[in-house]
Amino acid sequence: MAGGKLKGVLPPYLLSAPALVLYIALLGTPMIMTFVLSFHAFDFNKGILPGFGFSNYWEVLSDSYFHEIFLRTFGLALIVTVICVVIGAPEAYVLSRMKNPWRSIFLVVILGPLLISVIVRTLGWALLIGSNGVVSKTLQSMGLIEEGFQLMFTFSGMVIALVHVLVPFMVISVWAALQKLDPAVEHAGMSLGASQFTVLRRIVFPQVMPGILSGSMIVFALTASAFATPAIIGGRRLKVVATTAYDEFLNTLNWPLGATIAVLLLIANVLIIFSYNRLIERKYAQVFG
């Protein structure tokens, strides 16, 4: 490491002390409390019971109601991720081949919405795809459809809105991977006789694969834990894990069950991230390092 690192244990921990105290008090403690809470039983009349047990976990893992919610959530995450790959990765490639200033402009146009509140972006889709929505109205006025249609409160509606909310993350990841690509490799491939398509398939694609994977991981994890968009577009009927936890906490007031759902969501999230890291280490350490 250039310049060399300073030795010593006390100074770095003193420097980190304020943050460390904050994290232990406000992140460590609540997380442990939630974990503990998930093992408490609950009674609608008596509230949280003192005993410990796996009853909540058993309830979630055996009840088909929860199965459906978890399946819907991860199905949603899978579909959103696939669509983000299919449209986000090519868009990143197109962007990388643009010349400035267009490249910077469109990079900001596509990534900028990340800074706009999710609730605003979701509202935009509610306006577009609702029964009185702009899409429906426009198609009607053009005489393309007879009756107004509605994607509000449908699975497809959730997919569209979530793709919109999360696809910038895919573009960022693939874009970052493309930046590491030596621009001459495409020329090298062509000079060896490869067609444009072969260059894309055999030279560009394998090299941006780590970017696609990391983008997929981010999109999948964020979709699986998304709250605002499923709550507004999916509504009461199409519940996902996050909205279910919310309902258990703030509507049914069954906190231990809500905590259990939260813990399971966290475990699933952490598992995805760790298995992704393992995959990257195993597969790409030798090649890209």
């Binding site: 030795k7 244990v9 770095p12 992140l27 997380m31 709250f227 809500g258």
Partner: peptide, 27 residues
């Protein structure tokens, strides 16, 4: 500085990125 626990400390401080906000809210 190079000190024991450096990697772990960094990962700890970045860890809220991995935790779904719903889980944080509940906690």
């Amino acid at each position: 500085y190079s000190f024991p626990g450096r990697e772990g400390l960094t990962a700890f401080f970045l860890s809220p990125l991995m935790i779904p906000h719903v889980v944080l809210g509940v906690s």
